[in-house]
Amino acid sequence: MAVIELRDIVKTFGHVRALDGLDLAVEQGEVHGFLGPNGAGKSTAIRVLLGLLASDSGTARMLGGDPWRDAADLHRRLAYVPGDVALWPNLTGGEVIDVLGRMRGGLDERLRAEMLERFELDPRKRARTYSKGNRQKVALVAALSSRAELYLLDEPTSGLDPLMEVEFQRAVQELKGRGATVLLSSHILAEAEALSDRISIIRGGRVVQSGTLAELRHLTRTTVVAETAASPDRLGEVEGVHDPRVVDGRVSFDVDSDHLDGVVRALADLGVLSLTAHPPTLEELFLRQYGDASTS
């Protein structure tokens, strides 16, 4: 059963078409990566789902209801972390967590204590004195302390340091283990890849690719740059290698993620002198797929 179903949603702000016929389906129990560059329309789509914005046209269903008409009732069953967390400067982090939890209909005391600890958040500080990362942690702890059916997380890790990002990934795995549904927006491919069962890629207000990780494997090639003792000329014949180029005695090429093993072995046979590898960024991906790196 689809927990979220957006069909042909259009939302304009004056001349800007923030959503331009967006289709999105999120199934029960899945972690769905909502991937797109800045300005693609991720936050707008999530706000339409929350009934904060009214779409100009199209149909939207969430948790079996109408996100605009049934907003308050549906919100009892979901938790939201905004992309840019703003809090009341006079309240402490602990107070904000309680306020938001009670307003959605109650929070789990045990989870609250556990999340505070795991995210190393001091709940006694006034929100005014929190950094961006700490404000984000307040919103995360508030959301993760609830036992919701659906979690809408809008770029929840953009202010977190790497250790906290690992903690966040663990928390999402636990949500999934509990059977909750998660919509996770991000502009970092690797992050969505690490957590998601399925991914939708949004660009210019419409979804341009959607599918399971396996289906999108061709998108997630690793870029390898290597210097070898023997000539790398025959590397192009190895399965999974794309576009090998030799520049200044170094070979660089892209590898399908599921062929990494064989390629590394082939490289080793040539005698590796130096090696770097990195996953493609979203911009590189767009460059390859659509011939542009447009971000808005």
Partner: peptide, 14 residues
């Protein structure tokens, strides 16, 4: 300031 959003995303109606 973006603070109303978090409240209206809870069960609090407009």
């Amino acid at each position: 300031a973006g603070r109303a959003e978090v409240v209206l995303a809870t069960a609090v109606s407009r």
